[in-house]
Structure formats: C-alpha cells, structure tokens
C-alpha cells in the first residue's frame, strides 16, 4: 500500500485524461493544485471558458515575465491573463454564476471523497488548524457537475476514497466522478464504480487501495 505514485498515470496524464471528458463550449471552474493542470490538455478544436471565482470569465495562462498586473489574478492569487472575449464582474455576480447553475463543471482537489459523493477538502478539523473555506462550499452546491482529481491515496498510504468522510465536509453527495492515477471512478447511487482503469493497473490493485466497496462497470 505504499507509494502509489510509481504506478499509474502521472499528474499530467491524469489531467489529460480528465480534459478529454470536457465537452466543447463548457464553462469550467478549476480549483487550485492538480486541477489547474487540466487547462493545459484541452484537446485541439475545443474551446472552454474558464471561470475564476474572484471575478473573471475567459481566464488565460500566466503572463510573460514582467507583463503581469497584480490586479489580474486567479483564485489561487497567481497572476493570469484575460483572453479575447473575457469579462470581469464583482463577487456577488461571480457566485450567482456558481450557485445559479450557470457553470457546467468544476474540478477540485480532495482530502476525502465518500462513496455517497460526500466531499471533504477544506479542513482537517484539528484544534490548531486555521479554518479557511473559500468558495468550495458554494462551488459544490451550485455547479452542474463536480469532478475530483486527486492521488488515490494520501502520502502515508491511506485511501482517499472512503465509506464515510472523517474530515469536516465541504458538501453532501456532491461529487459525480473521481480521477486518480489508477482509475476513473464514477460515484453512482450504488457507490464507487470504475469507468476506466489506467493501462497496466489491475482492478484488484485499485480495490485494495479504496476504502469503500468498488464495482466494475
């Protein structure tokens, strides 16, 4: 149960695998970390519009060195660019887009995902942790599809796909699909279901590293 990173897809390959599943013309919000990689792998011929919840639709890549504006940033507070056709707006409008069901997809990182679709990704709940939630609870409550992209297990080998989340929840029953280095897994009314295995990875190998019942499609 150690170092799962040596087996399966790399982070870039995980991001590429997810990007293939995003339909042309989608409005997409990408979380911080591995989710940000997805933007690099959008298949040729598709146009996606990226939403960043601090107030921009039509977010482009990082600026050339020295060409950035400290007031043009993404939700991770890094400098970005605005593509042709972009729009700026204030926070209440930005979260109206999110809560109002106008964003097609959001891709988030996770600490734990449960087989009923519960997500925990904002706090360990430990007494000295500084709680910080940002927009995650609004995103999972309002975006049409919510995907998680994450390593299958924690650095210490604990499953992140579990029967019940033990960390404080971000939302209840909100996750549709999980992309890990081992597999693509849907959250169905009957629990976790493998949609696709990474080439060379056996179903049993994934099942042993999953903290809840796992079925094959």
């Amino acid at each position: 149960m150690t170092n799962t990173e040596e087996i399966g897809w790399s982070r870039d390959e995980m991001a590429r695998r997810l990007a293939v599943d995003i339909p042309d013309g989608s409005y997409v919000n990408l979380g911080i970390g591995i989710p940000e990689l997805v933007a690099r792998f959008v298949p040729e011929g598709r146009t996606l519009i990226y939403h960043t919840e601090n107030g921009l639709l039509g977010m482009g890549p990082s600026p050339e060195k020295g060409a950035g504006d400290p007031e043009l940033i993404n939700a991770g507070k890094r400098q970005v660019t605005a593509l042709a056709g972009a729009a700026y707006f204030h926070h209440a409008d930005s979260f109206a887009m999110i809560r109002g069901g106008h964003i097609d997809l959001c891709v988030l990182g996770a600490m734990q995902v449960a087989c009923n679709g519960d997500l925990a990704n904002w706090s360990t709940g430990e007494p000295d942790a500084i709680p910080a939630v940002g927009g995650a609870m609004d995103l999972v409550a309002g975006v049409k599809s919510v995907y998680v992209i994450t390593q299958h297990c924690t650095k210490t080998g604990e499953p992140k796909l579990v029967e019940r989340c033990t960390y404080p929840l971000t939302g209840r029953g909100v996750i549709n699909r999980v992309y890990t280095e081992l597999a693509v897994i849907d959250v169905t009314p009957a629990g976790f279901e493998v949609v696709e295995l990474c080439p060379g990875v056996e179903f049993e190998y994934v099942r042993e590293r999953t903290g809840a019942p796992l079925r094959r499609r």
Binding site: H91, F95, V133
Partner: peptide
C-alpha cells in the same frame, strides 16, 4: 487566532458576497 486574541466568523466565499 491560536492565542485566542481574535474572534473569527468563517463564511463560505459566495455566502459572504451575498
């Protein structure tokens, strides 16, 4: 915060805006 010198009301970002 850890020294108990300040009160925090933590609010989801969209709820804060609304």
């Amino acid at each position: 915060y850890r020294r108990g010198k300040i009160e925090l009301e933590l609010v989801p970002q969209g709820t804060l805006a609304e």
